[in-house]
């Protein structure tokens, strides 16, 4: 299965809106909670209460500062999980076939029973989307909650990834990016959704919506206020007149 499918029926993925992510880490722990209980081995934590805790997480929130040419520096909270790349190098490097991309929906998964824990796929991923479990020693990665999105034991409205369901601001959306009519595709089109590291040639399915412009001059919208009077006395005169009009 290490070869990539030539075509996938769907391209399921996430659209992450950098304009509204507040960096709350809700998606991080919701993901950890779901995936600890579900697909594959639990996401372990090593030295959990110790000096150097290391746990596996499938989704993490970075933050960056951007200094524009003019105006104050901006801060961007930046969630990152597997982008379910179309040309996923993590899949082709895998010597065992444990890494594969699903034909039905393009989800990139690790079949943990086959994984030898060589780490090569994590090396091949430019995004840091794979983490070797510190205790179980198999490769963990975002499953796009494959065990939620089709899960018939869940109510229909809950058949979406755990991180999407929990995100308080609604900065994460899930859908089929191969269908131009899907809500996510439309969002991507409208907001100029972008690829991370396009030069790596991975063709990520997940898209990022850039932050809207910040700190634009406010006065472009309206003229500054004109004074009704310079003196307090004049102000009271204006007040009287205006009240008269109010009746």
């Amino acid at each position: 299965m290490t070869s990539l499918p030539t075509h996938t029926e769907k391209k399921l993925g996430l659209v992450i809106d950098l304009d509204i992510c507040v960096g709350c880490h809700a998606c991080v722990t919701a993901c950890k909670g779901w995936n600890t209980q579900n697909y594959g081995a639990p996401l372990a934590d090593q030295d959990a209460y110790g000096a150097d805790p290391v746990g596996s997480f499938l989704n993490r929130i970075h933050s960056y500062e951007v200094q524009p040419e003019k105006g104050p520096a901006q801060l961007v909270h930046f969630p990152k999980s597997c982008l379910h790349c179309d040309d996923a190098p993590c899949v082709t490097v895998c010597p065992t076939g444990a890494s594969y991309k699903r034909v039905e929906d393009g989800i990139v998964l690790v079949n943990e029973d086959d994984c030898i824990g060589c780490g090569l796929c994590a090396w091949a991923c430019p995004y840091g989307a794979r983490e070797m479990d510190p205790v179980e020693k198999v490769m963990k990665k975002c499953t796009l909650c494959v065990d939620r999105i089709y899960n018939e034991n869940l109510p229909e409205e809950d058949r979406e990834p755990a991180c999407v369901r929990t995100c308080p601001t609604g900065a994460r959306a899930f859908g089929d990016l191969s269908d131009p009519e899907s809500a996510v595709s439309k969002q991507v089109a409208a907001r100029g959704g972008m690829d991370l590291m396009p030069e790596q040639g991975t063709k990520p399915v997940n898209k990022y919506l850039p932050p809207r412009p910040r700190d634009e001059p406010l006065d472009v919208l309206g003229p500054l206020l004109a004074n009704v009077a310079e003196e307090p006395k004049g102000f009271l005169g204006w007040l009287d007149k205006t009240l008269e009009k109010l009746g």
Binding site: I20, G23, C24, A73, Q74, V76, H77, T169, R212, P213
Partner: peptide, 26 residues
């Protein structure tokens, strides 16, 4: 999130620009 969806403007007044203030338009 709702405000942003509707295109409403958010102004953050805070010495520090993280979190809510990071996504404020101003």
């Amino acid at each position: 999130g709702r405000l942003k969806e509707r295109g409403a403007r958010v102004i953050g007044v805070n010495p520090i620009r993280t979190g809510y203030n990071a996504i404020a338009d101003d």
